[in-house]
Structures are given as C-alpha cells and as structure tokens.
Amino acid sequence: MARVVIFGSLRAFTGGVEMMEIEAATTRELLKKLTARYPALFDTIESGVSLAIDGEVFKDAWFTPIGPESEVVIMPLMVGG
C-alpha cells in the first residue's frame, strides 16, 4: 500500500492525521479513496492538488501509476511565473 503524506495545513481536514496507507493503482483512485475517508478534503482536492510520487511532482494527473511501496505527498496546486 502507498504511504500518503498530507501537508501541514491540510491536516485540519484529516483530524490531524499526517500519514496513512492507501491501496491505489493510480492517483485518481488514491484521491477518491482519500476523500471517501476524509470528506472535508473534497473541496481542496476538487479544486486541484499537486502530488509528489517518490519525489517527482505531478499536477492534476489522474492516471499516474502508484507503486505499492510509493510515497505520495499531497500538496497544493502549484503555479509559476
């Protein structure tokens, strides 16, 4: 199962939980399971998040594969200049 890390201020919507394990093959499946577990995360995830999978950052990509040993960090949707 992938290890999912929630960034600091988002933990307000997970009851303070920082780390959890979720079984998911893709980012979409992971985000769906995450919002099912923590419905308060829905608005944030729906408006877009970035994910770092094993250190590589992905923006809003539904079908990025996630390995069983992967670390997935949920981050705000990032923008640049």
């Binding site: 890390v5 960034f7 770092a52 094993d54 250190g55 590589e56 950052v57 670390e71 960090v73 981050m75």
Partner: peptide
Amino acid sequence: KSSYGPTFK
C-alpha cells in the same frame, strides 16, 4: 526529505 514534503531526486 524536503521541508515541503517530497524527497529530492
């Protein structure tokens, strides 16, 4: 492990 979460490549 970066200060913002991901581990650097």
